[in-house]
Amino acid sequence: MHSPLIKICGISTADTLAACLAARAEWCGFNFYAPSPRFVSSEQVSRLAAQAGPAIRKAGVFVDASDAVLAEAVAAGRLDAIQLHGHETPQRAAEVRAQFGLPVWKVLSVSEAADVARASAFYEAADFLLFDAKTPKGQMPGGMGLSFDWSLLAAYRGPLPWGLAGGLNPINVAEAARQTKAPLVDVSSGVESAPGVKDIDKIEAFCQAARAL
């Protein structure tokens, strides 16, 4: 099988972005959800986008964001994709895509087969689906180090490209990619030394492991 594309999410500093570039990750993610320990301001992301240049694609992560928040972030981060990680409906996803002219990624929180089946509602509204672990009620949506039963994706045959997130780390990513045949793997807390603090060595190790297939 082909090695999956790699997305390192929650990048907020110049040195960790440099680590993503050095490890040849295809995507980095900037988190625009204010309560998150990985939140970046427009000023921060503008500097990071300039550093990234065309060498890596940039996704903005949003949770039920307004058009104004999206517009500011898209401009500051020179984003290549808008990742919707909240309770956005298919209608909202389609609106965002039409408004900003960028690919829309929709995160689907998974704990059972019915959650994977929900993907069909977004086939016409989104460009990419990201299957992530469902977090407990009241917890941060994503970035919690939780995984789900990867076998739930065995039957997924949807028309959209997709990725796997949730509890991935340098130790389990190769097995996760083997089991699911995910076209993309997405990591955040799995390459951190503390919440929101990325570890350069773990970023390198994750990328190496994901490609060792």
Rank of each mutant, 00 (worst) to 15 (best):
E88G: 10
A76V: 02
I82Y: 03
V69M: 13
A22S: 15
L79T: 01
A34V: 15
A75H: 02
E72I: 07
A14N: 08
G77R: 02
V45L: 12
E88A: 08
P54C: 13
P90I: 04
K7Q: 12
Q91H: 11
D80G: 07
Q51N: 10
A55I: 07
A25E: 01
R24N: 14
A98Q: 13
G29C: 10
A25S: 11
K106T: 10
D80P: 02
F100V: 00
V63H: 13
L17W: 14
R97N: 04
S66P: 06
F62W: 13
F30K: 08
V107G: 10
P54K: 14
P35H: 12
P90K: 05
F62G: 05
A49H: 09
L17Q: 11
F32S: 05
D80C: 01
G101N: 06
V61M: 03
S36F: 11
S42W: 12
S46K: 12
F100G: 00
L48D: 03
V104F: 01
W105G: 05
A59W: 07
A93G: 05
A75N: 02
A73T: 03
A73R: 02
K7T: 06
F30C: 10
Q99C: 09
G101L: 10
L17K: 09
G77Y: 03
Q51Y: 11
I11P: 03
V63L: 14
L108E: 09
G77L: 05
L79S: 02
C9T: 14
Q99I: 04
P37M: 13
L48H: 03
L5C: 09
F62V: 06
S12C: 11
S42E: 13
S42V: 11
I11L: 15
C28V: 15
I82C: 05
P103M: 07
A25P: 00
L102W: 01
S66F: 06
A93D: 01
Q91A: 15
L102A: 01
A25N: 01
S42M: 10
A25R: 00
T16V: 14
P90G: 06
C28I: 15
C28G: 07
I82R: 05
R24K: 15
A65W: 09
G60H: 07
A65N: 10
H85D: 09
A98E: 13
V96D: 01
V74L: 00
L48A: 03
P103Y: 04
A25K: 00
A93W: 00
S66R: 05
D64Q: 10
S46L: 06
R92T: 09
G101I: 05
A18E: 15
L48N: 02
A94D: 14
V96M: 04
S36E: 09
I11R: 03
F32V: 02
D64T: 12
V104M: 02
